[in-house]
């Protein structure tokens, strides 16, 4: 049984097809990184999973049951676009509302617990409209966490968080899925951050899922490269292009030689051409570069 199983999902807004024939599988216990450009159908898919907009076709199953089943939906938490809080109510009141919405036996205890988790205890008395962007985002995540949901659907949860806030959220996510049953679908443009926690990925483009893989499959697919610096970078690039098919300069100012054998061979080759390597290391491309390459391929 999977946490989320979507088959042939589609959604039309008038003539426009936002999602067409999308398949998606989120295993239990996964942190599923859902990646796509703005307008790719990512948010639309998430809204349909949460039952917030009707589908135009296809099926969505959550933990083996139809997504419209009441007993499955009570165990969900959501943060899509901005947090859904009443601006004139305090953080405490907003969270108590959601605790009551979920019919929790001891709502005060649960709200205190969640506020501690997202380090917002001190701000509980603030009106939501007076909170900063980062605090609002934490409140939004806190609202989604109330009731220990089995499935979390989070759209750009890290926006507005500072480095400490992002670290806290990473810990929260990892803690949630540690029981092997609870799962998170999280979309973010911060691919570097996503890569630190995601166990699975789904890449959506023009309303279709173009790739789904586990974190280890991504790791294997990511190309290895040797990154080096010499005292004459331009000449080094020229020389290396004569022997290796893919040479690039990266954003940190290193020359990258892709898909090659041993670094020592490169050093030797450059030495034979009168160039001394000042720094050399082997690395793999990350999720961000993998994604950019994939988008370029698609063109």
């Amino acid at each position: 049984m999977n946490a989320v199983e979507i088959r042939n999902l589609s959604k039309n807004f008038g003539a426009k097809q936002a999602v067409c024939g999308l398949d998606m599988t989120v295993p239990m216990g996964a942190i599923y990184g859902f990646i796509g450009e703005n307008g790719s159908g990512k948010s639309t898919t998430e809204k349909m999973i949460c039952g917030l907009i009707p589908t135009s076709g296809g099926s969505i199953a959550l933990y083996g049951k139809d997504y419209r089943d009441e007993n499955v939906r009570k165990d969900m938490g959501v943060l899509i676009e901005a947090p859904g809080c009443f601006p004139n109510l305090t953080v405490w009141d907003n969270m108590m509302l959601q605790a009551r919405n979920l019919n929790i036996e001891e709502p005060e205890k649960e709200v205190i617990k969640i506020l501690k988790k997202v380090r917002m205890e001190g701000a509980a008395g603030n009106k939501y409209k007076n909170c900063s962007l980062g605090m609002k985002q934490r409140v939004g995540i806190a609202m989604a966490l109330i009731g220990e949901p089995t499935l979390l659907v989070l759209d750009e949860p890290l926006n507005g968080l500072d480095a400490d806030g992002m670290r806290i959220m990473r810990e929260v996510f990892t803690d949630i899925v540690s029981d092997g049953r609870r799962s998170i679908v999280v979309s973010s443009h911060l691919l570097g951050e996503l890569q630190k926690v995601a166990t699975h990925y789904g890449i959506i483009r023009h309303g279709k899922m173009i790739r789904e893989m586990t974190a280890s499959e991504l790791d294997q697919s990511c190309r290895t490269f040797v990154a080096l610096q010499t005292e004459d970078m331009d000449r080094a690039k020229y020389v290396l292009k004569g022997r290796y098919s893919r040479i690039e300069e990266d954003e940190a100012g290193y020359i990258r030689v892709y898909d090659t054998e041993l670094p020592e061979n490169i050093v030797e080759y450059l030495y034979e051409n009168g160039l001394y390597v000042t720094e050399i290391k082997t690395d793999k491309i990350g999720l961000e570069e993998y994604y950019i390459d994939l988008m370029k391929e698609g063109k």
């Binding site: 917030l52 969900m76 859904g84 009443f86």
Partner: peptide, 18 residues
């Protein structure tokens, strides 16, 4: 209308399909 303008409808209706 406040339910929808505030966005609370997202939290409300995600956990209730009826």
């Amino acid at each position: 209308s406040d339910d929808f303008r505030s966005g609370y409808s997202k939290n409300l209706f995600t956990v209730r399909s009826k």
